[in-house]
Design a protein around this nucleic acid. Sequence first.
DNA 1: ACAAAATTACTTACCGGGTAGTAAGTTGCT
DNA 2: AGCAACTTACTACCCGGTAAGTAATTTTGT
Lengths: 209, 209
Amino acid sequence: MNPTTRQPRRSRPETLARRERILEAAMTTFGARGYNKGPLTEIADQVGMTHAGVLHHFGSKDRLLIEVLRYRDESDVKDLEGQHIPGGLDLFRHLVRTALLNARRAGLVQAYAVLSAESVTEGHPARDWFVERYRTLRGQVTEAFRAVCAERGIDEPATVDRAAASILGVMDGLQVQWLLDPDQVDLAESTAFAIEAIMAQVLDPRDVL
Amino acid sequence: MNPTTRQPRRSRPETLARRERILEAAMTTFGARGYNKGPLTEIADQVGMTHAGVLHHFGSKDRLLIEVLRYRDESDVKDLEGQHIPGGLDLFRHLVRTALLNARRAGLVQAYAVLSAESVTEGHPARDWFVERYRTLRGQVTEAFRAVCAERGIDEPATVDRAAASILGVMDGLQVQWLLDPDQVDLAESTAFAIEAIMAQVLDPRDVL
DNA sequence: ACAAAATTACTTACCGGGTAGTAAGTTGCT
DNA sequence: AGCAACTTACTACCCGGTAAGTAATTTTGT
């Protein structure tokens, strides 16, 4: 039995819970300080162990980061479980509802905002993850657009691609402005407005410039 | 004469040029690696001096960063000199042109994308600068919207505020996606599309959800 | 059922690299 | 003479990773 095939035992549920606490602590620290400036000791402190203890569980800081990202994905999927994944118009309603929800979760929003931008830097461990994430999200939005367009006899693949990227773009860009200046930017209202604007332009384009 | 009032002589033009080279090198390094992970030595190397030499000119790394940001602002203003600051419809045309230009300046785009998101983290030296920057930009876009709306007898201040934030938001958000995946995201096309969509929705709102 | 063996979940201690800032000295311009 | 523009050298930290040891727990052999 070679070491790559060997099953790590991982029998204890108490350990699993501990790892989850570490992952949540890591999200907090990376969100507040960024990956580069977020020290393992701060994460370890939150769960009452030393930084070597954290490394025992995750091997390296890089590995911890990607596990954090994967873990959050799983949690989100779990939240949607039972409910079907929304498509067509419902997807857009879902995005608007998400923006509304996000306005009450500044910590999480900040983590994604900081990490996604940081990920474009040289040799960042989360770069591939974010590339893949945006591809998937754009794909889902594109698909929803195609469904809505098909219902109305529209077929503009280039427009739909631009619109999908734009919708994700506004959501992210507004988050940064909102994090910097919450009193001046209404995250939910602005996001909803922009999504409607983009959808309207897809379904019935108008020139204004 | 207390030290705050005292004029540093700064007579030599050669020195001024050297400082500008440092500022440009700093923008490069901070853009490529972020502020936190961008070491002074790398900046110093680019201009052929030691990191202590850089500190001699700018006092501290924090101070260097804000000088970099101020310097870029000045350069941009200088580029627009002679030409009047665009207003009304021209401002939006200017934004679209900027997006087109930006697709050829990945380095600069990355610097702003990385630094703006990093600035929301705890105690970041550029936070205030970015807060102010976005306020100013939103103000300018809002003003342009008001002008265009006035021509057409529209008066929807709340909508205009949301639209202004949204336009800056898409521009920024699309930049991150484009930096991560340049082959999958057309920065200029998507930005132009989104700006038109948002303008159309301001000038003639439609419900689609 | 039970003792030995193996493994897990850590801690303490340390290493090594990196980095911002400072102090003191040197050279050359004004 | 005096200041500007550096360099060299050093300090003081911080931080990720590793090694070695320990207690607890699980697995295994009988």
